[in-house]
Design a binder for these strands. Structure first.
Lengths: 242, 242
DNA sequence: CTGGTCCGTTTTGTGCACAATTCGTGGCGA
DNA sequence: TCGCCACGAATTGTGCACAAAACGGACCAG
């Protein structure tokens, strides 16, 4: 019997079983962090070179990401960072409200005060968000903001639901990247803190209201008017130009 | 310019662009219909032969199905029809309650009477279910039962949420296949009819209550005790045997 | 009869080569 | 100058061959 159970033969960088998962995470995070804008082409060869793996492996990864709707696969054209339509964006946020409502309901059923571990982790997370906010680290802030919602889902104890929400959060990031208004940004960190405080010591239902308002607020910061969707109306774009 | 836009070069059986989607559907339905029991091995070569395609294509299909948690991929061992744990089964049903609550809420916000098209489609579907029930066509009944819930989600107008629910319904089928009690079966068709009637002419909230009871009922027909999960306790199994 | 090891067969995993398609460029004619 | 066509380069799609691993049975020792 082999004595080594974990971390078997993984000497070569980029190889090994977990390589695909690593690349999926890597690309997924790059998209969530908005370092890859919607519509960006993801050429197989380039990615293969970047990650030091063969093209087929990249191909597999792209297929997985396409399944999660974070990448769009166009036959004979290649893979592109998904560019959600306004309708899809609205649907994603609606879906999030549906799921997160259930999450918060479950959390709000916890006896007060909250379990120590939960409280501690939430507050630790808030601290990191606020730190990123102070430092002006916008990228970290975006990622942490998503992780906050995921953390809540984990506490709700339904891994299936949490997995679904994880996908929806990634797609939210895409929607935000695609439809964010130029000027705007209310601080998620602040709203998250208020939510946690309501969860810990607010009246029943207060946390829920804050969460719904938070999600509404995030969606409201997007420009989801019909014209943003599909083909742009060139006439109106150049209307008042000479 | 080519004159043929649809169905281009698809002469050879099994080829063409839509081949993968067809195979995914085919296998997915076989699983949902419980003609493929949980744990069944899905050998690549066999499937390739059955569907008349190359092995790599089958491989791709299996990867997609694995992503939907309807198939489990074990490295160097192959693909198997997923066998959910009791915990996962509970989570799936909980997730369905969360999503279907939202669906029914949306539907219940429709003005009475319901739009003609919706009402007609629902009643047509009920008729098909009852027909299958009378004919004792258990397989059709199972499939139609799932489609009923999906139909409701479609009417709710959120394709994203409907897509998520579609996955959950497939996984419900797996859970039922894995945990169904020997003796038991309340008729879904009857409960579906009552639900539609409540939606069409019942007081507000009645439809919701029926739907939640329906989902509870379906789950209650499963044997989700801890012992069914994971390794069986041989001691208790053979306790009163000589 | 139990337990273990070895080896052949079967099945899965991976890289490579080539086919097919698309896109960009340049030439040609009106 | 504009439009069209064709050709070439680059990129994606697919089959194939081989490598790697697991399964099953035979064989053997205790």
């Amino acid at each position: 019997m082999k004595t080594v159970l974990s971390a078997p033969r993984r000497a070569v960088r980029g190889r090994g079983e977990g390589a695909e998962a690593r690349i999926v995470r890597s690309i997924g995070e790059a998209i969530a962090d908005r370092r890859l804008a919607p519509g960006t082409k993801l050429a197989e060869e380039s990615l293969a070179e970047v990650f030091g793996v063969s093209r087929e492996r990249v191909r597999k990864v792209l297929l997985l990401l396409a399944q999660r709707r974070v990448v769009t696969l166009i036959p004979n054209r290649g893979a592109f960072v998904a560019k959600p339509t306004a309708r899809e964006a609205r649907e994603v946020f609606e879906a999030r409200r549906v799921i997160e409502r259930a999450v918060v309901e479950a959390l709000d059923r916890n006896p007060r005060p909250l379990p120590d571990e939960m409280s501690a982790k939430l507050r630790a997370h808030l601290a990191r968000e606020e730190e990123a906010d102070r430092a002006g680290d916008r990228m970290s802030l975006i990622r942490l903001s998503g992780q906050f919602h995921l953390l809540l889902a984990d506490f709700a104890g339904n891994a299936t639901l949490a997995g679904i929400l994880a996908d929806l959060i990634d797609r939210s990031s895409l929607a935000i990247a695609a439809f964010e208004r130029r000027s705007s940004h209310s601080c998620s960190a602040t709203e998250h803190r208020r939510f946690v405080e309501a969860l810990e010591s607010g009246p029943p239902g207060a946390a829920m209201r804050l969460m719904m308002e938070h999600l509404d607020e995030v969606e409201r910061q997007l420009d989801l008017d019909a014209r943003s969707d599909g083909a742009v109306d060139l006439k109106s774009v150049f209307a008042d130009r000479t």
